[in-house]
Design a protein around this nucleic acid. Structure first.
Lengths: 190, 190
DNA sequence: AATTTACGTCAGTGATGTTGACTTATTTGG
DNA sequence: CCAAATAAGTCAACATCACTGACGTAAATT
């Protein structure tokens, strides 16, 4: 590529002390961009073969991991609008990757489940991502596993952290300070 | 949210040994999604005020960090098409955030630079992201800094790693095995 | 019985990406 | 020196994924 060198025109004689620290943090910013770019590239290729996009992937993934998820939950997780979700969800249902059932207690709710077909695709997609992460953790060193989870968790907006902690349901030392050790396990489940 | 519990219908009696490991890896997959979602949310809010999107941010960032970047370089970095870049780049130029100059040696090249205005916005955006990362690293622990960079770097597709290493120009122990200690520093620079 | 809730849907819009083809200016190589 | 390759810009058409706002329907709640 032959990139030119940054001659640091801006912030010339500001605090030199944390200048180095800032450079390392900016490296993190850029690394996160590249890491995510490539993290999504493997699934994207597979999804293309089904005529699906990243939006389909996210829906399929979270429904697969959380059978009986409600539409409202999905909206909270993905932080998109009902209309955005509707399109991809409809496709996934129409093509037999996701099935829905009315809730027993509240029949307004549509509980979402993956079909066998959907589970297969979800697993293939997850395998691709798990493989890349496993390799990266191995390359990063023995303690990268835990450290990375702690870092990524801390990157989440404070308001959503508890929700995410419940969602990914990782117990033990894997995440910092569970704040509330009680984990009321609902018994309905599928 | 009251999410139902995964009853693990799939891969029932396969290897139980790394089942736990797989769960932790899947947690990483999901954490990366949430982390990136929130990582981009701060800049997005600021960009909105300028009528810009994420695409503008990426262009502005890399031009700001690499003055004199060529269009072709940008295409390699962002991995988008010329047409996608053209739209946002044109806007950034028209609105005075980025300036271009023909290359001295090769006058076909259009070298890109941020203007003062562009540098200010780029710095504000970077500050937002740096702040979130700094906080997350602090919460994750003392060695998260280095570990996280190693992990993120290893997440990058093997073919692009060297390019990225040059681009983010982090030396020393910050990244694993530089492979080639020689770093020929081009002297043209701006 | 009225309100709220969960979900679906219609219509319109915008940001960002894609492909393919073509032009212009400039450098390079036989 | 002229042909080919290269860097960049441009046009047209299109897909995906997000948005807003409004409205409908069924079921639960008050």
């Amino acid at each position: 590529m032959q990139l030119p060198v940054d001659t640091a025109k801006h912030q010339v004689d500001t605090v030199r002390v944390d200048d180095d620290a800032r450079q390392r943090l900016i490296a993190c910013v850029e690394l996160l961009f590249f890491a995510y770019r490539d993290f999504t590239s493997d699934p994207d290729r597979l999804l293309d073969q089904y005529g699906f996009g990243r939006a389909h992937h996210r829906v399929l993934h979270f429904v697969s991991r959380n059978p009986g998820l409600r539409v409202a939950d999905l909206l909270l997780i993905l932080q998109i609008t009902k209309q955005s979700l509707a399109r991809v969800l409809k496709q996934l249902i129409d093509e037999g990757f996701i099935a829905q059932r009315s809730g027993k207690e509240d029949r307004r709710e549509r509980l979402l489940f993956v079909t066998i077909k959907g589970a297969k695709l979800a697993d293939r997609l997850t395998d691709l991502q798990v493989r890349r992460i496993a390799e990266a953790l191995e390359k990063a060193g023995p303690e990268a596993d835990e450290m990375t989870r702690r870092f990524l968790f801390a990157m989440i907006g404070e308001k959503d952290r508890e929700k995410v902690r419940e969602l990914i349901r990782l117990t033990g030392a894997s995440l910092p300070e569970p704040a509330n050790a009680e984990r009321p396990i609902p018994e309905d489940a599928t």
